[in-house]
Amino acid sequence: MPHDGHDHDHDHTEPPSDIELRVKSLESLLVEKGLVDPATLDALVDRYEHHVGPQNGKKVVARAWTDPAYRQWLQDDASAAIGDFGFKGRQGEHMVCVENGPKVHNLVVCTLCSCYPWTVLGLPPVWYKSAPYRSRAVADPRGVLTEFGTTLAPDVDVRVWDSTSEMRYLVIPERPAGTDGWTAEQLEQLITRNSMIGVEKARTPEELKGAAE
């Protein structure tokens, strides 16, 4: 499977590939010239590998599901409402939240590069950056959704958000039935990264129970 050209379990005793050598050469050149600080590289990787990710977006969605005033704030000024959690910064400066409902389903793509709301979802998955997704999400969204196991009724209005500017889109999935009285923390377990991109719905309580067993 061609995810970024590397198998997870490739044999590390193999000689380094051309791309590995090219990156290593550039890194050592820039460090030697004093154009990058190696500690800066490590700090940036650490932030985006360990500290920013879908766990942020889940908090936003769970609060939207449980707090009508917050949900309204997300519609009125999503950047400020999301910033209330401290989720701010690069690739999240200008946020818009789009809500799914019984007759509306939203899906986010960037056909021109791979713009993605880093502050709430972290770095994008390989498939989001892939040519198959970027080419087809706008022309055949229902077909794309079926590849994620998501089938929508024919009368559901599918809205695809092509991230062509610095506006970044977060999907608020529909709150699953059977979750009355659940706390925000409980609800977070039903919220998936993919549901906040819009390629699937939030998990149902039954699916959550099934996954735990």
């Binding site: 969204p141 009368d155 209005d157 599918v158 958000w161 092509d162 062509t164 500017s165």
Partner: peptide
């Protein structure tokens, strides 16, 4: 798909 639309920022 007439029941789909695309929103682009322009």
């Amino acid at each position: 798909d007439a029941k789909s639309s695309v929103y682009a920022d322009l």
